[in-house]
């Protein structure tokens, strides 16, 4: 199964780079959805030892939430507004791609420094998840529109999920469910927040949200 695992991991890296270089909101939401589905398939692709109910249930829950429910919520949030592209991000797309390369090499370096106990049979799983976390953080900071910031948050969460699969033997089922529920509510609340901001400001530029200072 390692072949499948590595294919998914490489696809995850590619999706990071597409997100870093893309400005159309609808496109970004779609890529983030695909990334969510691939992350959801990770535990299934690695279940060599035995295909338990737990793995199947979690895999399905993650795929449904990240692949279908979240994009829906985000699409609904942007439907009302006129803008469909990122307007002048804080960091340009070319620079963003360079930052992505930097994040990827930093992740490989960090993986070499810290010896993580591995539970997945792939040498690149930890660097890939770390680089997803870095990319997510970068998107939150570097993008101007609220929807893209939420996508950054989702990429960060995907990275954390992949890392948890790689280094923790088994996170208790109850905790996993709690984490998923929190994520669902988070995206739901953020969606409502974006909708409200739209109604009040008539656009989604969170940079205009900069009256409170000092």
């Amino acid at each position: 199964m390692t072949a499948y695992l590595d294919i998914i991991l490489v696809a995850l890296i590619l999706s990071d780079f597409i997100l870093l270089g893309s400005g159309r909101l609808g496109n970004c939401i779609r890529i983030a959805a695909w990334q969510g589905i691939m992350v959801g398939l990770l535990p299934i692709a690695t279940a060599d030892a035995g295909f338990s109910f737990r793995i199947a249930a979690l895999g399905i829950a993650v795929v449904v939430l990240k692949g279908f429910v979240f994009p829906r919520l985000l699409n609904r949030a942007i439907r009302e507004s006129a803008s469909s592209r990122e307007v002048k991000p804080f960091v340009g797309y070319t620079t963003s791609l360079l930052a992505g390369v930097l994040a990827l090499s930093a992740s490989f370096w960090l993986d070499g420094r810290l010896s993580f106990p591995l539970h997945l049979e792939s040498a690149i799983v930890v660097p890939v998840s770390l680089s997803m976390m870095f990319t997510g953080l970068f998107l939150v900071v570097a993008r101007r529109t609220a929807v893209n910031q939420v996508i950054g948050y989702l990429v960060l969460e995907n990275g954390i999920y992949a890392l948890s699969l790689a280094i923790v033997r088994d996170v208790p089922f109850l905790v996993e469910l709690g984490v998923l529920m929190d994520m669902f509510v988070a995206v739901f609340v953020m969606g409502i927040a974006i909708y409200r901001i739209n109604m009040e400001f008539d656009h989604m530029d969170s940079n205009r949200l900069a009256k409170l200072r000092g």
């Binding site: 609220a146 948050y153 953020m190 009040e200 400001f201 009256k211 409170l212």
Partner: peptide
């Protein structure tokens, strides 16, 4: 609901 309170809420949430 004011622009100020929405800004504060978004910053806090994110």
């Amino acid at each position: 609901v004011t622009p100020g309170s929405l800004e504060a809420m978004w910053k806090y949430l994110l």
